[in-house]
Design a protein around this nucleic acid. Structure first.
Length: 502
RNA sequence: GCGCCUCUAGCUCAACGGCAGAGCAAUGGACUCUUAAUCCACAGGUUGGGGGUUCGAAUCCCCCGGGGCGCACCA
């Protein structure tokens, strides 16, 4: 390792004074690793063990011929202990800016007060910060600044770092869990000629060479089922999907959806899969199936409650409704409950609207809501016992939809009729209705066996497991309006360029 | 898209019709065991932008812009 320690340029104090920094560096210890290995050390011990650490200087305390610092890396923080006698270029070390990246080689020790530290015996600057770091105690409070400058937020907001690290861990655990069950990860197109697989407004774009309108996918569903037709019996995709809709604490225009399809399975198999997967993740991430979400306890243990949509409506409103309830009665109930409806809505759509208004948000502990009407489930297979219903369920946790799943619709003729119903709804002004996907129908013509399918909102799952109130906290770079005053001028040395919330 | 709230130093916040302030950061100095170190000194502002009311506006009113939260849409 080449040490560039003591490379102060002699022009200290100038903003543009950039020390030469090494092309590579080889740390051999981390803050967390040191705490784990030496955590039990008594006060005043010098171990003689030499380690190399690297990171950002987050705190600094001069003490005459001593100096203390706190070095942060991706695992946490460790104290640095520098002395005029042992630390080369001690003077310069004491003048480092908060936020500077440094590499340190030194001896593992504890101070007289017992704080585990690395005594700085060699050090070098790995990168200087030319912008001041936020308040060392309060950090950044303005949410907009946090999301825009995530590269700073990750250093000064520990929860942000831990949450986003947990997200990575969760996605990794999902992959491994599914692979252990013989699911194969695939990647299907994100550019779709026909948007499908969900009810949502797409982003539109254009391919120049093909001179063709294209859509960013709103769901990978129809491609994944094509793969089951193709003989991949268990597939999954962790898909970034795009929906041209509002932004809110629970919605980002691009978000991540886990979809999986299992041949020969039905919706009951998928229910078991979901509750087991989520319980497994809760234990791995939170240490228990009982987690706290927004100051309220949440029991994710298996099995989750099953309840039909109609029964939940009755539970909340005391009114018994079903597909055979006269339409006027349903409309009257909507009016009574302040639920908007249109003439084109059938009994199934009215039921769904009533359920979403009255019951969905009232659920807290997980519940699989079953028996969705055919009318609102264009890709789900008819219920084997209940006419007009499908074998579809949604998993509701903490009052929000976590997943949507069903026994997949197999019959090409039925599917064509459902698509055509959707087109009629589109003609009636429903911009989220589906279009006919002829190639998908052709695939179904070749035969799809019984298949259970699932979509889970990964962002919302991460929110639950990390106790995050907003989706922006679990997305590294959430969608924001572009900053207005951030031109090329901000890159000029000495330019103000500080990007506040304005 | 509609409603409510909000925008003051690099960061976190005061001042709420009467001289724009503090802490941290920065800058200069003291200090051999600090833990958000402490102490001394110094500096930092077109109060988001524009207009209006007023003897006087960060403060009240209007318009515009950014952000937050609800509603609507949705996952």
């Amino acid at each position: 390792m080449e040490w560039v320690g003591g490379c102060a340029s002699g022009q200290a104090g100038l903003v543009n004074d950039r020390a030469p920094v090494p092309y590579r560096f080889d740390p051999d210890a981390t803050a967390a690793g040191l705490k784990q290995q030496y955590g039990q050390l008594e006060a005043g011990v010098e171990t003689g063990d030499r380690v190399v650490v690297a990171g950002r200087l987050m705190l600094r305390r001069g003490q005459g011929k001593l100096a203390f610092g706190q070095l942060a890396d991706s695992t946490g923080r460790i104290q640095l202990f520098a002395t005029a006698n042992d630390t080369p270029d001690f003077e310069r070390f004491g003048k480092l800016s908060l936020g500077d990246w440094i590499g340190v080689s030194g001896e593992v020790m504890t101070t007289r007060k017992g704080e585990l530290s690395v005594k700085v015996l060699e050090w070098s600057i790995l990168a200087e910060t030319r912008r001041p770091f936020p308040d060392k105690w309060h950090g950044i409070n303005d949410p907009d600044t946090r999301y825009r400058q995530r590269y700073v937020d990750l250093w000064v907001t520990e929860e942000a770092r831990l949450t986003l690290q947990a997200r990575s861990k969760i996605v990794s655990l999902i992959r491994r869990w599914l692979e252990d069950r013989d699911f194969m990860e695939v990647e299907t197109p994100a550019l779709h000629p026909v948007p499908g697989g969900a009810l949502a407004r797409p982003f539109t774009t254009h391919h120049n060479a093909l001179d063709q309108e294209m859509f960013l996918r709103i769901a990978p569903e129809l491609y994944l089922k094509r793969l089951v037709v193709g003989g991949f019996e268990r597939v999954f995709e962790i898909a970034r999907v795009f929906r041209n809709e509002g932004i809110s604490p629970r919605h980002n225009p691009e978000f991540t959806m886990l979809e999986l399809y299992q041949a020969y399975a039905d919706w009951t198999d998928i229910m078991e899969l979901v509750e087991q997967l989520v319980a497994y993740l809760a234990i791995e991430i939170c240490g228990s199936t009982t987690v706290t979400y927004q100051d309220r306890e949440l029991d994710l243990s298996v099995p989750w409650r099953r309840a039909s949509m109609a029964s939940l409506i009755e539970e909340q409103t005391g009114r018994s409704v079903g597909l055979d309830t006269p339409i006027d009665e349903l409309r009257a109930l909507c009016d009574e409950l302040d639920v908007e409806w249109r003439d084109s809505y059938g009994a199934g759509k009215l039921m769904l609207e009533i359920y979403e208004k009255t019951a969905e948000g009232e659920q807290w502990d997980p519940v699989f809501v079953t028996e969705y009407p055919v009318e609102v489930s264009p890709l789900a297979r008819p219920h084997r016992e209940l006419p007009g219903m499908t074998e579809r369920f949604e998993g509701i946790v903490a009052g929000r939809e976590l997943c949507n799943a069903f026994s997949e619709l197999l019959d090409p003729d039925d599917q064509r009729a459902r698509f055509e119903d959707q087109v009629r709804e589109r003609d009636n002004g429903d911009e989220e209705a589906m279009a006919v996907d002829e190639d998908y129908l052709r695939a179904l013509d070749y035969g799809l066996p019984a298949t259970g399918g699932l979509g889970i909102g990964v962002d919302r799952l991460v929110m639950l497991l990390t106790d995050s109130a907003t989706i922006r906290d679990v997305v590294l770079f959430p969608t924001l309006r572009p900053e207005q005053d951030l031109g090329s001028g901000s890159m000029e040395p000495g330019g103000d360029g500080q990007t506040s919330s304005t």
